[in-house]
Design a protein around this nucleic acid. Structure first.
Lengths: 141, 141
DNA sequence: AGATTATCTGTAGAGTTGTTCAGACGTTAA
DNA sequence: TTAACGTCTGAACAACTCTACAGATAATCT
């Protein structure tokens, strides 16, 4: 797609431009591009949101909002298998979303990141879940 | 989420328990389960986060933070193909994350949901992107 | 009318993700 | 020591997602 160059017919700018991309409001495009975060930041952001994009992991994290829990209690709480919980927690451990405290053969997990707590609160408000009124905001749709 | 009653051992390390699900802190499990949002809310939440879990869609939404844009300008801004942008916007249109204003053959998209705007702001703060200081919070890890 | 433009859609293939099963590891109890 | 336990891991498979291409649609222009 990017290979096929086409001259801008009605471009508000340079005649004879080699630009392959059609633009309507070139000024705005430039402004927005200059404010766009770095590639790595965008990727990290997508990764974090991706961790929150699975119902099982969301249930785990909501459970952890109340305090630390061990793997088998998380399984009982969320309905996932213990193996499933363990796999999920490994994904969350990587980017330091949760942290472990080990006591003997038990492993107690808790939220390690206040931003994620806020994302969950905000999201829960969005979907209309009551019981979370710490962030008050306008409902929009 | 409601049915499946089970005998709760009610204390750590109960020998001879026939319980199919092992529990360590049954009291806490019960407390957390009672506060767990409905299945549909958890799913909706995961869907919203899932929409934010792709770098291309994140770039589109960040661009739209600055105001409405047409498809081809979004393509130029984000580096995606116009077809790709259109596919992404269709996904975002479904759950009313973005909205369209049509003028002739142009389609101008804008954010339709203030919650999503806040999720993006919060996420950008999380990944350490400067330029967004509207939400001040403690850094945690 | 036909041509051009902007956007939208269907489809197919590659890649990724979630779940399950089986077994491993380290810890505790008998 | 052996056995039981809680947790972790690897592998396999189905299900899903992203991307690119081709073509469709509707608006505008010549």
């Amino acid at each position: 797609m990017t290979g096929t160059a086409q001259a801008l017919p009605t471009s508000p700018g340079q005649p004879g431009s080699e630009c392959a991309i059609r633009l309507v409001d070139a000024e705005k495009v430039e402004a927005v591009r200059s404010r766009m975060p770095a590639e790595s930041d965008v990727t990290d952001l997508a990764v974090i949101f991706g961790l929150l994009s699975d119902p099982g992991r969301v249930r785990i994290l909501i459970a952890l909002l109340e305090g630390e829990m061990c793997v088998c209690d998380l399984a009982a709480t969320t309905g996932l298998s213990e193996s499933g919980v363990s796999h999920a927690l490994r994904l969350l451990r990587g980017p330091r979303v949760v942290q472990v405290r080990r006591a003997g053969r038990m492993a107690y997990y808790s939220l390690a990141d206040s931003h994620v707590r806020m994302l969950l609160d905000l999201g829960l408000t969005h979907v209309g879940h009551a019981g979370q009124d710490r962030l008050t905001m306008v409902s929009n749709n």
